[in-house]
Design a protein around this nucleic acid. Structure first.
Length: 296
DNA sequence: CGTGAGACAATACCAAGGGA
DNA sequence: TCCCTTGGTATTGTCTCACG
């Protein structure tokens, strides 16, 4: 038998005849005329190279091959039926789904603690997996369904994506507590004199560079790292300065949290999802749960 | 035991729909 | 437009069973 050319409707025909032991009744069950059913049986017989059912005084009795096939056929039909009749709703209490969320390290720190406590309350069997990937992979991961959501200040996600603002996150500067020339005032001159750490995955440094170029000013970046918490550690042990979202500095110890002496807008932290997930009830539930969280 | 009626599967033929 | 597939109606073939 060639599965590529096999008419899967014939599985329903097979199941109906097996159950009814009668072609006419099977036809009525399957919503066909008796001759159409008989013709379908003929095609099944050709496909299987077996009579499948033989006429006896007790009705159409299955052959050994038919007895062998009925189990797998019914299993396959049941799986199909279950899949097609999948309820439209998402049941948080019963779901064992794993949600994959793209987050920055700053995002993990602020979002995950709040999200997981809400999830544990409403959906005790749901799992959350935080994914850390380069920005240029976000689009593909959301598109393919490998990630359910992305959270952050992700202006590069545009066509094909929906978004919803979760909270605003103003930027701040970090410098170590016993810094030789940086204290509570932190004027622009001190910012320009200091040596800086830049964080590749965030937007803070782009905004800083743009603000500086408008003023025709420059700063000295001597280190580039990939994560905010690494930058905070570096700052604590050196005289370097870093610009980070306020929430990324929440757990920083041994550093001064200073206002940025430049005019840069606060980070707009949003959740992004691909249009393929827009109507997925599970994804809708997750988005709704995130939207209800208080981030202030 | 032969015969006719009824039930049921199979076949003949036609129409509709979809793909090349 | 043609060809193929599928399902419809009409019909035939086969089997069983009751009855004389």
């Amino acid at each position: 038998m060639n599965i590529k050319t096999f008419d899967l409707n014939l599985l329903r025909v097979f199941d109906a005849i097996y159950a009814e032991r009668n072609v006419s009744r099977a036809a009525s069950v399957a919503g066909l005329s008796q001759p159409a059913m008989s013709n379908a049986l003929l095609r099944l017989r050709k496909a299987c190279s077996d009579a499948l059912f033989v006429r006896t005084t007790g009705g159409m009795e299955p052959t050994a091959l038919a007895d062998e096939l009925i189990g797998p056929v019914r299993q396959a039909l049941a799986i199909l039926q279950q899949s097609l009749e999948r309820p439209n709703g998402f049941e948080p209490k019963a779901s064992e789904r794993t949600f994959k969320i793209l987050l920055s390290d700053a995002g993990e720190g602020i979002v995950l603690p709040r999200l997981i406590s809400a999830v544990l309350r409403e959906a005790p069997h749901v799992r959350i997996e935080a994914l850390r990937r380069p920005n240029d992979q976000y689009q593909q991961l959301l598109q393919s369904g490998e990630a359910d959501l992305a959270i952050g200040n992700l202006a590069f996600l545009k066509s094909g994506f929906y978004q919803q603002r979760l909270f605003g996150d103003p930027y701040c500067c970090l410098a170590r507590k016993r810094h030789p020339f940086i204290g509570p005032g932190f004027p622009l001159q001190a910012f320009l004199t200091a040596q800086h750490v830049a964080v590749a995955t965030g937007n803070a440094d782009d905004l800083v560079e743009r603000a500086l170029s408008k003023m025709r000013a420059k700063r000295d970046v001597i280190l580039r790292v990939t994560h905010y918490h690494v930058a905070a550690d570096v700052v604590e042990r050196s005289n370097l300065v870093v610009t980070v979202p306020r929430n990324a500095a929440r757990n920083a110890r041994g550093v001064q949290i200073l206002p940025v002496p430049l005019s840069i807008p606060a980070a707009d932290v949003r959740q992004f999802w691909h249009r393929r997930a827009h109507k997925d009830p599970a994804n809708q539930w997750l988005r709704g749960t995130l939207a209800k969280l208080a981030f202030d």
